[in-house]
Design a protein around this nucleic acid. Structure first.
Lengths: 341, 341
DNA sequence: CTGTTAGCGCCTTCAC
DNA sequence: GTGAAGGCGCTAACAG
């Protein structure tokens, strides 16, 4: 049995409340008494039970981090930022994986609520109603969502403008002279923001390029999905000369597959991804991609969350812009294009 | 204010203990009463406060996961396995990053202890004394360590036989005809297991190859560190024909650097890594590497931990063997070698 | 079957 | 300055 404050008090020959005072440094205690208590603490190797403390104080100093898949390097980088920012402020983080399933998300969030987390960083809400409702509760956790959607959800929203990111990526391909651009798209369904698709479409439209629906194939954001999708897309004739993929994982798989069947990247097929996960920058991969400010996203969200906890703060909506990182996978100029780079 | 069991009891017109019974499904309750309580629960949208429950039951149903760097894809894969296994058993996981610093590790673990986690999966203990001592405490958390060291630490130990992994990797290079094999080593210092170095050395010795200390340069396991190390190693003349690196991140950087300065991989320089993180298998990288059973490690550790929690179990020591995954970065045969593959 | 009664470990008035 | 007492939300005997 670990020592409790009671043991400390007894050993120091003081009342529990006095022991509490010196441990928490609150209220007046004579130097002499303080010394006695501190001595007792040391002797018993006493650690305050923060469960009990939380029960009393209604604050657990912990926050939940809800992500689709912590095994995905993209989320893991965000998680790293969150953990660091949280630790620096004395908070700890409870990790919940949703695997992209609404049910798991609900259960996970329920768990976090039961564990009385002070706040939740939610990336990203499949079930936005749940998030919205939760953030309405008076004594519920503060909810910060990170999302590619436009609509704010929760107490605070960190919005990554995916639409513009995708738009810029496709624009870049168009400037390079591409006119048949395939798209390995985000999955369909209400739980997935369709902003990247919108950006892709808008770019084509503004350039007055036709939209060929058979060049748009849904991916699943997972390993294996990019391969399936690119296969599908490359059944089209004439072949597209460029591919935009809704995330890097799928983009890299597209490159792999293209090379396997004898296409050269970028000469025969230019590829642009989305996210800028670490591997995108490796030599041998060199993926041009839309970089999401992963670290900032995690850090911003955490800081915002914790500062809200410390004092009331109006709901905030922050937009972060992704940026296009040009590497080699898109080529610098398409053969026969009039545009020089 | 969130609803408490008291509110539920009042609304259902029963005693608190009765409400508790139906909520926890313990003891006999008449169907009629049960229905009333359930109705009340629904009406108030009641969620049990697990903080309070934990205080009473001495069990928080949460476990700590201590890793060096969750942003590192290697750890993030282990974390994924841990989270999943934990969730399946109704446990949640508190994430602690050490960034490889002893102080952060201590603070993080203190935090976990204060938060009364039931167990800690510790990968990997820099300060093994801390781990050992903690696992001795009667009412302390169950400690499962994952480590490349031989010595058991904590309640249970999952040992990855790094020495054999490294040994096999270097053996492979030797079989391919290499005799000057550089090593981008693990960092020095008591907090880092030196098993991979041992394996490297043993392999050379058994093959009766000379050990050239200037071909062994310490890395830091981080991004950037492989680059620095390979630079150093390649100052040697004659150049080594092969490089073994203590992890994939550094191995990949070595490949990048080698290519930048005009060396072909694997023709001029064969490279073997350690870990088998996702990117190792990508086309364009194709890194031959010692695969650690990441998923098994996380899962095994978690299951072991939780089963211990449920009923006393003797301390266990499990050894998992890594396996060599041969891809292209090591070449199939060294020019001029007599060994065919 | 159901209600009453003690706490779990801690913090926080409120007296002295 | 210090102590006594109440209660956070919940569970677990123990009576009825």
């Amino acid at each position: 049995m670990a020592a409790t404050i009671k043991d400390v008090a007894k050993l120091a020959n003081v009342a529990i409340s006095t022991a509490s005072r010196v441990i928490n440094n609150s209220g007046y205690v004579s130097d002499e008494t303080r010394a006695r208590v501190e001595q007792a603490v040391k002797e018993l190797d006493y650690t305050p039970n923060s469960i009990a403390r939380s029960l009393k104080q209604k604050s657990t100093y912990s926050l939940g981090l809800v992500v689709t898949d912590i095994g995905n390097p993209f989320f893991s980088e965000v998680a790293q930022a969150v953990e660091r920012a949280a630790r620096e402020q004395g908070y700890s983080v409870l990790l919940v994986n949703t695997d992209g399933k609404a049910e798991q998300e609900r259960d996970g969030v329920d768990l976090l609520v039961a564990k009385q987390v002070d706040g939740i960083i939610w990336y990203s809400p499949i079930n936005s109603k749940l998030a919205e409702e939760l953030s309405q509760r008076k004594s519920g956790p503060v909810i910060v969502t990170i999302t590619g959607r436009r609509e704010p959800i929760g107490t605070h929203t960190i919005h990554i403008n995916d639409e513009i990111g995708a738009f810029e990526a496709v624009n870049h391909l168009i400037r390079l002279g591409h006119t048949r651009i395939g798209y390995i798209a985000e999955p369909e369904g209400p739980e997935y923001p369709q902003e990247r698709l919108h950006g892709y479409l808008r770019s084509l439209q503004e350039a007055k390029l036709p939209v060929d629906r058979s060049l748009i194939v849904r991916g699943d954001y997972q390993q294996g999905g990019g391969r399936k999708a690119i296969k599908e897309i490359l059944k089209n004739r004439p072949l597209p000369t460029a591919i935009f993929a809704a995330n890097d994982l799928m983009a890299v798989e597209a490159i792999q597959y293209a090379r396997e069947i004898g296409l050269e990247v970028p000469q025969d097929l230019a590829v642009v991804g989305f996210d800028d996960i670490m591997l995108a920058g490796l030599r041998g991969i060199d993926l041009t991609t839309v970089a999401q400010p992963k670290y900032e996203m995690g850090q911003e969200a955490t800081k915002l969350l914790i500062s809200t906890l410390k004092k009331e703060k109006a709901s905030r909506y922050i937009t972060l812009l992704p940026s296009l990182v040009i590497r080699r996978s898109c080529g610098y100029r398409l053969k026969g294009s009039a545009v020089s780079w």
